[in-house]
Simulated assay, not measured.
Amino acid sequence: MFSYFTVVAANAALPAVIEKYKHLQKQKEEVQKLEAQLNSMPLNLTDYVTVKQQLNSAVTKFYQAVEDLEGTGVVLKSLEEGLLDFPSKRFDEEVWLCWKEGETEIKFWHEKDVGFMGRKPLSVSDESLV
């Protein structure tokens, strides 16, 4: 179910979100490992089919991990760059609370149609985020 995050709620959810994000990264690494194995060495048909089935399973688990992460209410913007957005509101405007891998709390936001480069620091005194 969709809901907007307050800064407090986003920060409260962040530890579980980060855990799910890290799990997603591991799933991606497994997919990449199996793709490399499938493409880099000559395999007999038996080995090829086995690795291909493992790859299919890994891809399924990867997308299940994406669903699990986004099931928390966040939106995965870039796995490669480590960007997640939490839907929020600033006054009556829909905005994103922005998290980048390595950050320990939500400290930035940006407009709905602006990406990471448009991030602005949260300021309790002059910003009103729901």
Rank of each mutant, 00 (worst) to 15 (best):
S57R: 12
N56G: 11
A65Q: 03
F108H: 12
V59F: 13
V7K: 03
V95M: 00
T50R: 15
W96V: 01
G115F: 02
W109G: 00
E67R: 13
T50K: 15
E67D: 15
A9T: 10
F116Q: 06
E30A: 10
P87W: 04
N39Q: 13
T104N: 14
V124M: 12
A13R: 07
Q27T: 07
K100H: 08
E29L: 12
M117C: 01
H110Y: 03
Q25P: 00
L76G: 00
L55H: 02
E105R: 12
D126P: 00
S123A: 13
V114P: 02
P87T: 03
L79M: 08
I18L: 07
K20A: 10
E80Q: 14
N56V: 04
T72N: 07
V124A: 15
R119D: 00
T50N: 14
E67L: 14
H110E: 02
L129R: 07
V31G: 01
E93D: 10
A16S: 09
Q37P: 00
K77Q: 09
Q64C: 10
D92G: 09
S123N: 15
Q27S: 05
E70R: 05
N39A: 11
S123F: 12
W109L: 02
A65S: 11
E70K: 02
Q37L: 14
D113C: 06
E94G: 01
V59T: 11
D113T: 10
Q54E: 07
L34C: 02
E111W: 10
L24E: 02
E67N: 15
K28S: 07
K28F: 07
T46E: 15
